[in-house]
Design a protein around this nucleic acid. Structure first.
Length: 314
DNA sequence: GCGACAG
DNA sequence: ATCTTGTCGC
């Protein structure tokens, strides 16, 4: 029952999405807002979060959205939430957030309701922040909707505003010596959109870090390096590993030759991990008249619902 | 036809 | 994103 991907949205929808991005972009804060962000050792920082969405192989609709929270600086998982969702919007470069962000916001919202003390003080997002076609990537989008500091971490350079993955760029990468080394990514307008970061000593491919929300680029790069045990920042890496694992166990019985006849979909709770209450797949926009509003919009709907940001005191 | 294309 | 085994290195 692998549903197929919707084609490219009509220009009408893309126009609305661009308008949405332009509106929300005015709310982005691209500087440090928390004391720990300026501390040389990030003292005061205790919880870092990561989000990711993994897909079912032959299906472009079924996916697993995950949110994990790790302790800092130990980087041990203290919270995990994986849930199957049905994506409605197709993937369109430049509009990734409209496909994935609603589910990530839900996950954050649920964490706030059930384990507010575990709310991360910063979120690592798989994708770009201001390093984006219109300066508002998925990391900015999630940051604004949740009001949490966010860092965009992409694995490939998004070639926008004059940025090119050309010979010169590759040479700069080759010159990065040790983990933590980086160089600025300057857009055509002379603005630094992000940094290419060698996340650890023996990594060939850099990470492309950009500001998502409520954090300076300098702090974002420094913290990203501080969260890398491997090339991918541990919060995002754990979210990725666990979401894929969840999928593998969810349809492992049906997908491959059943080695274990008695294996339903019940196995999940290593730590303090709510496994998505196993209800109907989220993302099936209920109060939506079928036919109209083919794609979700949420800014003005979600913002008022979110709780006031007041970091839990320990 | 060719290059781009976050996830 | 996903399709995919072994292999080289610490």
């Amino acid at each position: 029952m692998a549903r197929k991907a919707s084609g490219r949205p009509p220009e009408e929808a893309l126009w609305l999405w661009k308008r949405e991005q332009a509106l929300l972009k005015t709310l982005v804060v691209d500087r440090d807002t928390e004391a720990w962000q300026r501390d040389p050792a990030f003292s005061g920082l205790q919880r870092v979060g990561g989000v990711d969405v993994s897909f079912v192989k032959g299906d472009s609709v079924s996916a697993c959205a995950s949110l994990v929270v790790l302790s800092y600086p130990e980087l041990e998982v203290m919270y995990e939430d994986c849930r199957m969702v049905s994506l409605t919007a197709p993937y369109v470069s430049g509009f990734l957030a409209f496909r994935e962000v609603p589910f990530l916001v839900d996950a954050v919202q649920q964490l706030w309701e059930k384990e507010p003390r575990l709310m991360p003080q910063v979120l690592f997002v798989d994708g770009n922040g201001v390093l984006h076609h219109r300066g508002f990537g998925v990391a900015c989008h999630l940051g604004v909707l949740t009001d949490l500091p966010c860092i965009g971490v992409a694995k490939k350079l998004l070639q926008v505003d004059g940025l090119e993955n050309n010979a010169l760029h590759k040479e700069k990468i080759r010159l990065l010596k040790a983990g933590g080394d980086s160089f600025p990514l300057m857009g055509g307008s002379g603005t630094v959109l992000g940094m290419a970061l060698k996340s650890h000593d023996h990594s060939t491919k850099p990470l492309y870090v950009s500001v998502g929300h409520k954090m300076s680029l300098e702090a974002a790069v420094r913290l990203t390096h501080g969260c890398c045990k491997f090339r991918i920042p541990e919060p995002v890496r754990q979210a990725d590993i666990r979401s894929r694992d969840y999928i593998r166990r969810t349809l492992g019985v049906q997908g491959a030759p059943a080695l274990r006849p008695e294996r339903s979909k019940k196995a999940q709770s290593p730590k303090a991990c709510p496994q998505g209450a196993s209800e109907e797949p989220a993302g099936t926009f209920k109060g939506t008249p079928s036919g109209r509003e083919a794609y979700p919009r949420f800014s003005s709907v979600v913002l008022p619902r979110l709780p006031q940001l007041s970091l839990p005191l320990d």
